[in-house]
Design a protein around this nucleic acid. Structure first.
Lengths: 222, 222
DNA sequence: TCCTTAATGGGAGACTGGTTCCGTTAAGAT
DNA sequence: ATCTTAACGGAACCAGTCTCCCATTAAGGA
């Protein structure tokens, strides 16, 4: 409200927040596009602020001021990705839904361009605390979107009623991300299939049942 | 033999290979120690060749010549780690062995110093192809060491005879690494326990059975 | 429409990180 | 013990990266 508190000018409110309109938004779009391209072509290690500015047709001062570092660029890219959410599947059965989920993850990571972005995001998160938080947030929303799938399966009696939805979903993703980020193995179709099957088998065996519905914080932070 | 072939000086054979004795070995030890320390304290993003040289008490020329870049340092550190292998457990039952394995992985990643090294290794592998190969090699030997555990379990009839040992072991590790590298969740004791249980349940359900003993290449490369 | 000022962008300069040169040290062979 | 030369290390040098200053543009409000 008041604009003359005593902390005037101590917080310039970080560029882009007070006038997020036309130009500012356009600049952000161009920079994030350029970042995506650069990651797909040369990878995270070669991500260079100057080059991004040049290929985005934007002053490099602006890039340094608004994003600060390559990690900052990747973090913002992650926020951007988090905004576009696609709905979960509903094949009528839990097995089918989980498999659809596994295939979605696989297709995402296996795509050369998107895969490069995820490699970068993982690398950046390993370096920077804030980026790690952004990444955790991304998965929190992603998993939350798919949780109903598990709930429906439980209602149908396909798995124990007390199954923790997030735990099951993590079990589906884990083998894919493990191969992607750690052992760098190829993500074939049957890796995805097996991930879904294994998770379901474990769920049926009651491995993912938790005392309550586990409404605590689902994804913690480092 | 002859020292005047026409490819003289084209391959200096990379420093450290022709005279790996006293001094050279000492330098490598000091540099890798300094690298470990730096990773534990400031993480991969801040890994700086100059600083490593200084804190190792070694000329920076040497560090640049032998390792070339931060990624090179981490890659060599990984090779060094791969040499020290600790034997697999043998508790008498597959459930116990898998649980021991999961706990070993958990303890490794949860240790602040070692965990930092693994974060760095994962980040470096996301940036550099050679480092990714080194990482894949590391896990190939690690898993191979534990494979007999699964074979014994199969002999005892605890799981289907055709179970692919590596596939089962990967299933144990995956949830831990997923949390460690991707979602950055805390690695609690029950995460490890559940990883082992889930993998075993899936194995019992025959999810990891493969046509043959699967003697092809177990871990591919990107 | 006009005004205020947030946000951008070009360019000069400083700085850090990386490379090269060359003399010194000591590993390994005789 | 002596010799050859691999490997090291100090210092100057070069380059790409980042910061700062200030003029210019246009967003959002009156």
């Amino acid at each position: 409200m008041e604009q003359e508190t005593r902390l005037t000018e101590s917080r310039p409110a970080s560029p882009g927040t007070l006038r997020p309109g036309g130009r500012t938004a356009k600049v952000r779009g161009a920079v994030l596009d350029a970042t995506r391209d650069a990651l797909a072509e040369t990878g995270f290690h070669a991500l260079n602020m100057d080059r991004i500015a040049a290929s985005a047709g934007v002053g490099k001062t602006t890039v340094y001021r608004r994003w600060g570092s390559p990690v900052g660029l990747v973090t913002d890219l992650l926020h951007d990705m988090a905004e576009q959410s696609l709905p979960a599947a509903d094949t009528g059965g839990l097995a089918g839904d989980l498999r659809a989920n596994a295939e979605l993850v696989r297709d995402t990571l296996a795509d050369p361009r998107v895969g490069a972005v995820f490699h970068a995001v993982i690398a950046a998160a390993a370096c920077d605390e804030e980026c790690a938080r952004a990444l955790a947030g991304f998965y929190r929303t992603r998993l939350a979107e798919w949780a109903p799938v598990v709930a429906r399966g439980a209602e149908r009696g396909e798995i124990p009623a007390e199954t923790d939805p997030l735990e099951l979903l993590r079990a589906v993703s884990a083998p894919l991300y493990y191969r992607f980020a750690v052992t760098h193995e190829e993500l074939t179709a049957d890796v995805a299939e097996r991930a879904a099957e294994a998770a379901l088998a474990a769920a049926r065996g009651g491995v993912f049942t938790r005392p309550q519905g586990a409404s605590g914080d689902p994804i913690g932070q480092e």
